[in-house]
């Protein structure tokens, strides 16, 4: 099984690749080639950095189009961090008016709150929506995952929310909409909890 980890010039791709290899998904590989991405069984869109610059990189490389086609084909697609945020319609971050991929209708908002440290950096609780496929095979205990974000996703449709987390607000920390999965946290950096999510994705 081929899992394409999409390289569009941003993000820590090697750690995503190594995490997939760790759980036995040996077919996970990093690629920027649109044909290779489209020929894969699954695709992962990682990301670090700002919404607007990420969208610019996606457009310049044509990855925006390939991602949309891939998702439309019904194959499993996983967005991570900013790779989750760009699935939404718009963001408060960066240049106003920059559109996301609009696969999950909604807005990306900035954390605000008295005395709240922004970015959120560190381990926070994941409250999975009952029955969410992402929650499959989780180790015992209260799951925590590693976050690095100043902005969070607010999908229009609550049915898209696969997990929530509290940081000043209760926000959507994972999405499940059809064949589209996404996590605001970094599963590749979240120890056993994160590895279990990648395993669920590789088995879906």
């Amino acid at each position: 099984m081929k899992i394409a980890i999409i390289d569009y010039g941003m993000g820590n791709l090697r750690s995503v690749e190594k995490a997939f290899h760790k759980i036995g998904a040996a077919g996970a590989f990093v690629t920027s080639d649109p044909a290779e991405i489209f020929a894969s069984d699954k695709a992962v869109l990682p990301g670090d950095g700002a919404f607007d610059s990420t969208m610019h990189s996606l457009r310049e490389s044509g990855i925006d189009k390939i991602s949309l086609d891939f998702i439309a084909s019904g194959r499993p697609f996983l967005g991570i961090c900013v790779g989750m945020q760009v699935l939404l319609t718009t963001s408060e971050e960066g240049e106003p008016g920059v559109r996301g991929l609009d696969v999950v209708p909604g807005q990306v908002k900035r954390f605000t709150g008295d005395g709240l440290k922004v970015p959120q950096i560190g381990w926070n609780n994941i409250n999975f929506t009952p029955g969410a496929p992402l929650a499959h095979g989780q180790p015992a205990g209260d799951p925590m995952a590693y976050f690095l974000n100043s902005y969070y996703c607010a999908p229009d449709d609550p049915a898209d929310i696969a997990a929530t987390t509290d940081y000043g607000v209760t926000f959507c920390s994972a999405i499940h909409r059809g064949n589209v999965w996404a996590t605001q946290f970094h599963p590749e950096k979240s120890g056993l909890v994160g590895l279990a999510i990648l395993e669920s994705f590789s088995e879906v």
Binding site: R14, K18, S190
Partner: peptide
């Protein structure tokens, strides 16, 4: 290190 550990 990146090969061995899955924390930041």
């Amino acid at each position: 290190v990146a090969e061995e550990v899955f924390i930041p």
